[in-house]
Amino acid sequence: MSLFNRHKTKSDEALMLLFQEGNQRAFDEVYHRYSKRLLHFMFRMVNNDEALAQDLLHDIFMRLVQQPNRFDTSRNFKSWIFTVAANECYKHHRKRGIVEQVDVLEMDFPILDTNPHDLDQKTFRRALRKELEQLSYDHRCTFILRFQEGLSVKEVSDIMDCSEGTVKSRSHHCLKNLSVKLAMYNPINSD
């Protein structure tokens, strides 16, 4: 087994420990594991601005290279790196002043008066993007981490620095309200 493959079997925390000792291959492995996921997460969090997401990704990994000891190896690396990414997105939102404070419970429900026969995945994508943009930062972050990135409730609660109950409540309300809002795209309802 080559050295590179041996790194593939290691945990994130073990890799970070190696990286803190100066092992560059360990860093490469961490990069391959998380760069794409973080990019996708931040792309969604910054309202689908890919260039901005790329910049934020660059900043995060550059900071990791410059200060690898900032990560406490006793912690969960996945939660930590997603926390850093979420904070970067939040800082960007605050700087731009586009943090939407619309509560998911107070959102208006659309009137389903359109003929949904010819609505396809593309239209659904556009509608979901729009609905996600209208969510508050916390709800959007919770929804994306839970259902796009597939993180557990515990991991999301660590990242969002809130209780697991809050995460469950947020994800439940997001799922319920978004499914109602986008019900017109369900083939069963369109018949």
């Binding site: 794409k36 792309f43 997401a53 995945q121 994508r125 259902f147 499914s179 795209y185 369900n186």
Partner: peptide, 21 residues
């Protein structure tokens, strides 16, 4: 049924966009 259909479509969308990025 609505929530399940929504989740299936969302997953598909996330998958497609993730592949493009």
């Amino acid at each position: 049924v609505n929530q399940h259909a929504f989740m299936m479509k969302s997953k598909k969308m996330f998958q497609e966009e993730g592949d493009m990025l």
